[in-house]
């Protein structure tokens, strides 16, 4: 069973569980959909990935 890494989403605080990720990989928070960058594996740290705000322009 691959090791399950757990961390909190910095944006919404959701508990995020992942297996087989590498440093620098971009993953998505299942609750708020924000993109997160895997800063380190041990300890498992996630940070908001740089992301430009989509504008609907309505």
């Amino acid at each position: 069973m691959p090791e399950v890494l757990v961390a909190e989403c910095p944006e919404c605080g959701a508990e995020i569980e992942v297996t087989d990720v590498i440093e620098g990989e971009i993953i998505e928070c299942p609750d708020c959909g924000v993109e997160l960058e895997v800063r380190s594996l041990n300890p498992f740290v996630l940070e908001l990935a740089p992301q430009e705000e989509e504008d609907w322009g309505e």
Partner: peptide
């Protein structure tokens, strides 16, 4: 369901 998303 809590629906609050940055994009989409």
């Amino acid at each position: 369901r809590i629906v609050k998303e940055r994009q989409g």
